[in-house]
Design a protein around this nucleic acid. Sequence first.
DNA 1: ACCACAACCTGGCCGC
DNA 2: TGCGGCCAGGTTGTGG
Length: 278
Amino acid sequence: MPELPEVETIKNELLPQVKGCHFVGVSLLRPEVLRQPEASEFGPRLYGQRVEDIHRRGKYLLFHLSSGERLILHLKMSGLLLIRPSFAQVEPYTTAIFRLDDRKELHFCDRRKLGAMWLVEDENKIIGRLGPEPLDANFSPQVLSRSLGRHRVPIKALLCDQNLIAGIGNMYADEALFAACLHPLTKADSLSSQEVGRLHQAIQEVLERAIAGKGASTDTYRRPNGQLGSAHFEFQVAHRGGEPCYSCGILIERISIRGRGSYFCPNCQRGGLQGRLF
DNA sequence: ACCACAACCTGGCCGC
DNA sequence: TGCGGCCAGGTTGTGG
């Protein structure tokens, strides 16, 4: 599942391939992927535009176009962006093909069909409500503390809230809580300042390590060249239910929080307990 | 304002 | 072997 490190990797590896290229055609194989504008308007507005830059915001990818417009993509659960040669074979579940002027194509594939795409003049209509970027210099422990302090919900649920912090999903929330020795059910507003500091550092370290590993290929994720990421080999708890903790040997448990699988070590993640759980 | 939950989607996995 | 049902999870919308 593409979260911040996966989308960051896609951005990093796509950029040298498409920066400076012009769009010379687009095929919408599944027009429902396009949320804005109407499908009939999409091709004409994209045609001839140069890709000036690509940015990431949370889990969104933003293509900066020469007109000043933004082509925005969200990969949701199973979206892939693949660079292919012209007239390459089209994989199943391809929803859109962008043709570039250097005989390359950008394929948007999406097995679960949840991904989405916009072409807009004002990106803030799409990404304006996102919380701060966890790897930005201005994401301080104080900023994190302010986000957490007003909510009496399990810390795990808050870490996945894109309006509070942008880019963290289920896997990296579990990994950050393990690294901070915090139980996922701990009420967010009960964290001490030391615990918030630990969590802040854990979030940044877990995300940076996953970016260094080019993302985690636990499910369908692949990089634009088709290769897998390696970040999941370093996972301590995510998707490791029933396996022994690398730190203490106790079996990793899985519970459901807000309908999402949450993996944690019941021995290492006692922080936040002491009667503060429920 | 805050919180919970269903819906979207499909391949894979489980139990019978 | 086959089939029904459930699960994965990011985001939006609805309702309490």
